[in-house]
Amino acid sequence: MSLLDDGWAFGAEFADPLASLDTSIPDGVDGALLAAYALGLADDALVAAQRMTWWCSRAPELELDLAWANVALDLLGQARPLLVRAATAEPALVPALPAGSPIPAEDALAFFREPAGFRNHRLVEGADADFAQAVVRLLLLSTTRLAVFERLRHSRDQVLAGVAAKGVPELAYHRDLAAQWFLVLAGGTEESRRRTVAAVAALWPLHVEALETHAVEVAAARAGVGADPADVREQVAAVLGPLLETAGVVPPPSGRARPAATGRDGAHTAEFAPLLDEMQSVARAHPMGRW
């Protein structure tokens, strides 16, 4: 493109946003386990970002168009190296594409997996019924993910540790943004309060589910590369408890039995397949395409 440099109003350069990653697997760690663990964290971020982008041009105020796009960009930025980590730790995870396809592993994973191959929590895959759900979903996601990432900074895996170190301040901002709006909506008008209470009631069971321990997470924690959600439950409760109390919102009792299979097992809600249909449509139409 150098021949065109004179034609641009302000210079020209384009940098690859993916920095080079140290992808060696720590001694004694099973690559398939590391990949499965990274995939769950990647898919949470990818699917949450996909839902959040819906708000771009539809938010209640321009400032919120900007804010939700910011959060989605941060989460996409977390998802990409995590997908690369999964692909390098266990290449068999990456869906097969036609010979000679230029599509990189992160995109093969994002755009060519079937719904059952995704390991995201069900909390992040639902469409927001209204802006109160967007706020509550972000509050629950960012609070738990921040607590997990704070631990992951000390992961024996350099990729996970690096993603976590970069992600912690991002997630602290997401939580702050969501918590502020949570207080505003809970304390604003009767209608905003009613919607906020309804959003907490609807999403709380999925939040409890996201704090359940999965076998992959236990094994990853034991191997020194991951964090067990059970270990962050108290920390999460110490944040959400006072916030909900200040807002005067009571979460529903978590009496529901744990489902046999969750998002971490590839079990998803009815809303998930249509989400993937949209997200994957262009990429799948061009399996030999260059983007």
């Binding site: 946003p17 771009c56 041009s57 168009d65 989605a72 990409r80 755009f111 997200m279 061009h286 983007w291």
Partner: peptide
């Protein structure tokens, strides 16, 4: 944005539309 065919393109497009806001 929801149908961008690569994750890099999704980020680029989202950042662009955000700039417009």
């Amino acid at each position: 944005i929801g149908r961008a065919p690569s994750l890099r393109r999704k980020a680029v497009l989202l950042a662009k539309v955000q700039d417009e806001a």
